[in-house]
């Protein structure tokens, strides 16, 4: 995720209620974990910080969050170097640039520091990467939803933030592959369109797409402003009966469009959960608990683990629809 998108993705924070969580007690002083995020002070990471704080309390780890003032990989490296000097037990990282962070992470590991990343499936020099969604599954679920609305047939288009945004394109690849396999009567009428990070760009793209493909029946938007812009354009032209919109959105932003049934359903994951999960995994690692497939991540449930690939995935896709949207907004999203 790039800065614009992360900035855009979030409104506030919600603390998911965690029932029946075992309290882990420590005999010695709490170990220190510091998580370096992409940028400090934006809503998405404010929400993530709440999860970290909750994790700190639940797992008795002295966990905190820092981040550069602007989106600059070099500043992340500097923060990481400070943490090595400080000899923390665990470093959490939401990397901006996996290549730039690699050498300093390897130095940290050599100094005996555990590295837990989030949104860093390609990051070298880590112990574990934690994800709340499975990229492939996240794309497939949204395609499934779109297909349901389109009755499994008709023309559709896909929007992404940019043609090179790694996660968006991974989701799009998965969604399109899923459609080809399961819904042969649906047709992607054009290559994916960029611009889903900006409302006005996706609005303009949608106006053009509607003209270029008069039989269009569905829009799948990855990048949280794609469905919003598409929704505005579809509403303006009163085509909501004809064109179904599904995609990644923020509850508070999408509420009006969801209630009017223009965006049929939205999908996201919860950054507070992500922050919490990073601390939870850190606690498993510090306690020397073996991490294998199906391991119970405290508070989040069973995880699918790829030991060789150092990936831990908890399936926590958040569905945003007429029933859930108000609750999610009340929770601060």
């Amino acid at each position: 995720m790039n800065r614009r998108e992360t900035l855009r993705l979030m409104g506030g924070a919600t603390a998911m209620s965690v029932a029946g969580l075992p309290r882990l007690s420590w005999a010695d002083t709490p170990k220190e974990m510091v998580t370096v995020v992409k940028i400090a002070g934006i809503p998405w990471f404010n929400a993530l910080e709440k999860g970290i704080q909750k994790g700190a309390k639940d797992f008795s780890i002295n966990a905190s969050m820092v981040g550069p003032a602007n989106v600059d990989p070099a500043q992340q490296v500097k923060l990481l170097e400070d943490l090595i000097a400080k000899k923390v037990a665990v470093i959490g990282l939401v990397p901006l640039d996996v290549k730039v962070c690699e050498p300093v992470l390897k130095r940290a590991q050599a100094a005996g520091i555990k590295i837990i990343t989030h949104e860093g499936p390609e990051q070298e020099g880590r112990d574990w990467n934690v994800e709340l969604i499975d990229s492939v599954r996240f794309g497939e679920v949204q395609m499934e939803r779109l297909a349901k609305d389109m009755g499994g047939k008709g023309e559709y288009v896909v929007y992404v933030g940019t043609l090179t945004t790694p996660l968006h394109n991974k989701w799009a690849d998965a969604a399109i592959a899923y459609q080809k396999k399961n819904f042969p009567d649906m047709k992607l009428v054009a290559d994916r369109f960029p611009g889903a990070d900006e409302i006005d760009t996706s609005q303009r793209t949608t106006q053009d797409v509607i003209k270029a493909y008069p039989n269009l029946a569905g829009i799948l938007g990855f990048g949280s402003n794609g469905p919003i812009g598409a929704g505005n354009a579809v509403r303006q032209q009163r085509l909501q009966k004809k064109i179904a919109i599904v995609g990644t959105v923020l509850p508070s932003q999408a509420k009006a469009l969801i209630n009017d049934d223009i965006i049929r359903e939205g999908f996201l994951w919860n950054p507070t959960d992500a922050g919490y999960a990073m601390v939870a995994v850190a606690s498993l690692v510090l306690n020397g608990k073996p991490i294998t497939d199906g391991v119970e991540v405290p508070g989040l449930g069973k995880a699918s683990v790829d030991v060789a690939g150092k990936q831990i995935k908890v399936d926590k896709i958040m569905r945003i629809n007429k029933e859930t949207v108000d609750g999610l907004i009340a929770g601060g999203l």
Binding site: R3, R4, L7, R8, D197, E198, I199, D200, Q203, N225, I228, G229, N232, Q253
Partner: peptide, 9 residues
């Protein structure tokens, strides 16, 4: 046009 104010876009 965008029906919102987004400080970052």
């Amino acid at each position: 046009l965008a029906q919102s104010v987004a400080p970052t876009v």
